[in-house]
Design a protein around this nucleic acid. Structure first.
Lengths: 213, 213
DNA sequence: ATCCAAACAGATGTCGACATTAGACATTTA
DNA sequence: TAAATGTCTAATGTCGACATCTGTTTGGAT
């Protein structure tokens, strides 16, 4: 029995996440309240609540009096989103780079080992997941709640909207090297370098994903 | 006759803005849907829509099954919010510092002149407003929509929640000098300096406001 | 054939009522 | 007395119906 009680709104949010990740919904598609309500056997009220949450996370575009849509992001907007993520993460890690314990540094190394293994096995899903854990641990030492709120939102947005593209992004060797460059700068506690390499990582990743669109 | 049609939801948002700016609502207060609906002579549905928008802008905290509250920000959270604003604005201006025309530089100078005049007259409202115009023009050259979305949200949040405090922040001379330091770095197009001074400005402002709470 | 306007369909916006739940208060019990 | 339990109230969660608006289609006039 779950400790947290799940409201209809939360179920709708999860349901729409699934539709997005599974590719059932494509950019530009409208999320019709009536249709979703029918599909889930509930009324439109919790659907509307859920839409607002999805809008907040950038996963849905809202056009007044018209409806809710899966965002269509231009290549420029994709680059911008990744760039912004890089600015936020770069600052967060720079500010907290002295707080990692040796064990945590080991874990970060281990994530990259795993990532490379999964990459060689062409297990894209696990590559993305392990990469996510790497970045999560990396920023976890920041105590700036406000900043973390924005990185979380952006992560979710980029993850959900571009999950499919990650499979074609990097070679197994490249994806390892890229992240090891970041980790090295953290080990050195070289604050300017940390910010530089993290920004560069996201700028280049954004550019690559934008090129795939 | 207004060009943009105003829906009840927007009226509610404006109404709550007013309550916050006028100090009718204080941190920790609950925004009761039923009460607001009665006051405005409408039903709860548009109230709920408005709450979601206010939550999105950080002006309302939502506790499931309990209600919506005016946020209580700890001194640390205030500092964090201003810090994050500085990180975002610093990057935005650094990236776009070459795009200002001579006329726009003049306008920026003019805003600071005005700001100092208002400060000497103890016209806090106009000091804040002019300062807002200065920062708005400063970041307006950035074309990173995603980043601007976050700076806008944070501006609004900080403006609405701490408007009152600005009157006790800086002396007329100091507020001018602080902003001129920023403008000078922009005139020099010294990218690292721009990011440094903007971050520092927000860090110090955040610390001061936090100390007032 | 083209343009414009009126009607239509389907979506969101709003309403009032009922269901459910969290928190405060009163009550019981050791 | 104090902790645990029961009750009550007021708030949010949800519902189904109706109002209004948007985009489209259709049909007539040029």
């Amino acid at each position: 029995m779950p400790i947290v009680k799940t409201t209809y709104k939360d179920q709708v949010v999860d349901y729409v996440y699934g539709l997005l990740l599974d590719g059932v919904l494509s950019p530009g598609d409208q999320l019709k309240e009536t249709l979703l309500a029918e599909q889930m056997g509930i009324s439109r009220a919790p659907i509307r609540e859920a839409m607002k949450e999805l809008i907040m996370n950038g996963l849905v575009d809202y056009r007044p009096q018209v409806g809710n849509f899966v965002p269509i992001l231009s290549p420029k907007q994709i680059v911008d989103s990744y760039t912004t993520r890089g600015v936020l993460e770069g600052y967060a890690v720079m500010e907290s780079c002295t707080k990692f314990s040796p064990e945590e540094i080991d874990r970060l190394d281990h994530f990259l080992d795993q990532m490379e293994i999964y990459a060689h096995k062409n297990n894209h899903k696990m590559v993305v997941e392990t990469g996510g854990e790497f970045h999560d641990l990396l920023i976890s030492k920041s105590d700036n709640i406000q900043l973390l709120e924005y990185t979380d939102r952006l992560s979710l947005k980029l993850h959900v909207l571009f999950f499919k593209n990650w499979s074609k992004l990097y070679s197994p060797i490249e994806i390892g090297q890229r992240h090891r460059t970041i980790l090295e700068s953290v080990k050195l506690q070289d604050r300017p370098l940390i910010e530089t390499v993290i920004r560069q990582h996201y700028a280049e990743t954004g550019a690559k994903i934008a090129a795939l669109q």
